[in-house]
Design a protein around this nucleic acid. Structure first.
Lengths: 346, 346
DNA sequence: TTGAAAGCGCTAACAC
DNA sequence: GTGTTAGCGCTTTCAA
């Protein structure tokens, strides 16, 4: 069965050459109106659709970029993805999604180019990957990193200043009069840059305020889901001296912690104040609503796509390592602290 | 700049023919160990990566399927996507995402094949698209629909029995002793099958219980986000005789309604009971936790991918319309009613 | 303004 | 077992 018509078929039907049809399809100038009309009619009659594989092969690019992230069902990544897809669509790119589940092996594959030759570029939000993996990368697919900066990394990336943001949250909690402030979300994995930066910001704020750091108030976790937040909060509440406030390294942890606190009969923020990070929509409708750091996700997505777009280059011809001349760019995205009910003044 | 090595380069380096290299790359038998080793060394030395565009052009398929859905940042779709991507990965497919935002024009594009020739198949969760659009579709890309059944539709689809599920939710509310039960999520758009089915289920249950239908208790909405639920709940609370229970057509609406109710100082379920639909994770951690219909998302995703896989066919050769011989399959997915705190017995 | 033809990198008949 | 070669459908010099 004939699946689709090719340029040749159209050319035959219109009584012109393949080149002419191609010209019409690609909107080139210098086609006489008469010819153009003939061709367009044939195009319509045969319901012609260009074969993208062939076009890609010829052009050396595919028009597809990959977005690699830990998990699509974490609201932060879901929201970010929507913006990336929108921004990409505006520039004519199609987005393909790779879920790594934060697994080191999967992340390494992504970096080494499982999809190479299928994608023109990659936007990657890593969890475990560090400087070394990036440095030894052989895949030449243009890459933009999302999330924390991999220090001195050889790669373009866009991220907010996690350390400063975490410090601000903690300062906000201190300003509310709390001194016994816990932090949920520390990670033992040495490559977990985001967690380390947020923890560092937390510690800086405590130190500046002269509040001693108490290791028992900073339980570690492997993942950042609601269940983790709920479990860690239970641990904190069993402490001889439970915290007055908890800074959670993302909103999911905070929502889990909130559930635990409310179930335990505590009032939030009356008995314990809670702050999160990410500003996902859930936290805007929880009761109480959630104080959080709101990264400008739309900006992050747009800038990442723009940088990638410029790396890939206007696009004629083969994929290039382009843009490296200017050196990797580190772009800082905006964020703001949004104070809501969960830390409202007593 | 040379971007990557081709089979020819590898062949030259290994001192064999292109075909032999191809054989090795594709894991064919009948390659002598000595040759194989030579080739593999050359492969490694040149860091060979197959050009997928070329391979696709030749094989007539791309290994990519599209998942078209309204919005990635609605938790139900985010969760579903994760399962679709996982199921697809298991079968060697890569998933590309199209967001329609539920817009009729975008949905029509998807259906008519914007991505044709780039994808081997399409899994589509429509909002507005109806029977006619499906019937007049010319794109031959294998298609599986998700969500409500388009009645007598010409297309394979997988969905839960929305009508029955909605009836069960309403019956549950009736069994709790409520008679003044509102429903949030009706849609005026005649193609909004899901909304119509859920509304029909609600009405069936009322009727069976001899409870009169009150139009004021069934406000319509265009979209299904938290903000809509919050706004509609405000309207309901201003009624001279507000409802004792509210059945929301998805969890986001319910979470928005919950926020409004709690903000208004009402107790849930004491003053008003609330039920949702979808069983997204947010509703498992809200306070109170949310009674809801839980569709088996993993099953929906897996079955959709399996059906699509069989439609696309083993895959040799060109894309086919295959599978139509057996006629469109309508696959009913499992679901269950999960009763949680938001409708707990008084 | 249009046509002829080469070739992108790969796979698979078909030879040897 | 291995090599030769003909396309897949498209874009694009180069001629006409």
């Amino acid at each position: 069965m004939q699946v689709g018509s090719s340029l040749k078929d159209v050319a035959a039907r219109a009584g012109v050459s393949v080149k002419t049809v191609s010209n019409v399809v690609n909107g080139y100038t210098y086609v006489s109106p008469a010819t153009r009309e003939k061709v367009e009619q044939a195009l319509a009659e045969l319901d012609y659709r260009p074969n993208l594989s062939a076009r890609n092969l010829r052009r050396g690019r595919t028009g597809v970029i990959a977005l690699a992230l830990p998990e699509l069902d974490a609201p932060y990544f879901a929201e970010l993805s929507r913006f990336v897809i929108d921004a990409a669509a505006e520039r004519g790119w199609t987005v393909l999604i790779d879920q790594t589940d934060g697994q080191a092996a999967r992340e390494r594959e992504v970096l080494q180019g499982i999809r190479e030759q299928l994608i023109d570029g990659l936007i990657f939000s890593p969890i475990t990957v560090g400087r070394e993996e990036l440095a030894t990368r052989t895949d030449r697919t243009p890459l933009v990193l999302l999330g924390e900066r991999v220090l001195d990394g050889p790669t373009h990336h866009v991220a907010i200043d996690n350390l400063r943001a975490a410090r601000e949250v903690t300062e906000h909690l201190l300003a509310r009069g709390h001194t016994r402030i816990a932090a949920i979300g520390a990670q033992e994995n040495p490559s977990a840059n985001t967690a380390h930066l947020r923890l560092a910001g937390y510690r800086q704020a405590l130190e500046a305020a002269g509040v001693p750091f108490d290791e028992r108030l900073v339980p570690a976790t492997g993942s950042y889901r609601r269940a983790d937040g709920a479990a860690l909060m239970r641990e904190l509440l069993e402490l001889p001296e439970p915290p007055q406030a908890v800074f959670c390294f993302n909103d999911l942890l905070a929502l889990g912690a909130l559930r635990t606190a409310l179930s335990a009969g505590l009032r939030v923020p009356g008995d314990v104040a809670l702050a999160g990070f990410d500003d996902v929509e859930d936290g805007r409708y929880s009761t109480p609503t959630l104080t959080t750091v709101s990264p400008d996700k739309e900006q992050i997505a747009r800038v990442a796509v723009e940088v990638l777009d410029s790396l890939i280059g206007g696009g004629r011809g083969a994929r290039r390592a382009g843009g490296e001349a200017d050196g990797p760019r580190e772009i800082e995205a905006d964020y703001r602290l949004i104070v809501r009910e969960s830390t409202a003044a007593g």
